[in-house]
């Protein structure tokens, strides 16, 4: 397949001439990859949280949509500020991306300090409940206090509508950016875990909490970092969600969170590679079920939950599971 260089095509003139089944198939694959990128990032967050604290943090979806709101709000301010040159615009836009990521990360840390830390020695079901509560609170606050929060919002368009042609398949600039961000993020995560000191702390905690503390690792700090990063990942996914779908509403976070969670369970709670694998697996299953099974689009969610259920029951450690059930 040849890769053409960017032509100033408007997507409207790209009415597909040959409606080859293979092209549609490629489109579905592209869709799945886009979706999978989002699920994977959210899933990695879940995995990190679970690895560090054995906690399922249900407000990951809320972080996701929070970032979309922050990004949209700041970007519309930027656009409203008047015409800036493309370079300046690009830099500021990137800065906004970074800012929304960090803000969400801080919210993540705040949530950990206030509603998860107190339950460190409590039955594991308490943080599940409290994070569900936090998720509800964040979403409702967005709905109530963001201007017209209960209505659907528009994420400002910041990329040109052009793209590249991969054979017959059109890939837009925004899609390329999403792919690029995903790859960079995954590499950064890998680097963080394998090469940095604090990363090794995080891994140590997930392997054995007490031993890590005994070794002199500042457990509290490592946990804070974990939450910051996990929330950042959700934020990145949220920002990408805005770029890709353009329309969002305050209640979209919950579903994304649950799907991301399913992805991490399928891949194996505790394994970052598993989270990525799970994310793409879920996305592919959903997309192809919706496309090729009659009536599938209505029950695509059933597929997601069905897979979750199956794995929870039959193989709770997931595909690349690392944590075994403890035997006594």
């Amino acid at each position: 397949m040849s890769v053409g260089f960017p032509r100033p095509t408007d997507d409207s003139t790209l009415l597909v001439k040959e409606h080859a089944v293979s092209l549609v198939f490629l489109l579905q694959i592209k869709n799945s990859i886009m979706l999978g990128a989002q699920y994977s990032l959210i899933a990695i967050g879940f995995t990190l949280f679970f690895g560090a604290l054995n906690v399922v943090v249900f407000c990951q979806g809320a972080f996701y949509i929070l970032a979309t709101f922050i990004g949209a709000g700041l970007l519309s301010l930027l656009i409203g500020a008047g015409h800036l040159g493309p370079i300046v615009f690009g830099c500021v836009a990137f800065a906004i991306f970074f800012l929304s990521m960090c803000l969400t990360g801080l919210v993540g840390v705040l949530v950990e300090r206030t509603t998860i830390k107190p339950f460190r020695n409590a039955p594991l079901v308490m943080p599940i409940l409290s994070t569900i509560g936090v998720g509800i609170v964040i979403e409702q606050l967005l709905k109530l206090f963001y201007p017209q929060g209960s209505n659907p919002q528009v994420f400002p368009e910041i990329f040109p509508l052009t793209g590249v042609m991969l054979g017959d398949l059109f890939i837009s600039v925004s899609e390329l950016v999403i792919l690029a961000i995903t790859i960079v993020t995954l590499v950064a995560i890998w680097f963080f875990i394998k090469k940095t000191k604090i990363g090794s702390h995080v891994v140590a905690i997930s392997q054995d909490f007490e031993a890590a503390a005994l070794m002199g690792i500042n457990v509290d700090r490592a946990i804070m970092v974990t939450f910051f990063i996990g929330a950042c990942l959700a934020a990145i996914a949220g920002f990408m969600n805005g770029i890709y779908y353009t329309v969002f509403r305050y209640d979209m976070g919950a579903m994304a969170g649950i799907k991301g969670f399913s992805a991490s369970v399928v891949g194996g709670l505790g394994s970052v590679y598993g989270a990525v694998l799970g994310g793409f697996l879920m996305a592919f299953t959903e997309t192809f079920a919706a496309a090729y099974i009659p009536g599938g689009s209505a029950i695509r969610d059933v597929f997601s939950f069905g897979i979750l259920l199956l794995f929870l029951i039959l193989r709770p450690s997931g595909i690349i599971g690392e944590k075994a059930l403890d035997k006594v």
Binding site: L23, T287, G296, A298
Partner: peptide, 22 residues
Amino acid sequence: TDAVNVGEKDFMPILAKSLQLQ
């Protein structure tokens, strides 16, 4: 004819089908 859940964001799989059906 396709049905989606309320709150669905991703219509791409359905739309890809329509590319063929025109």
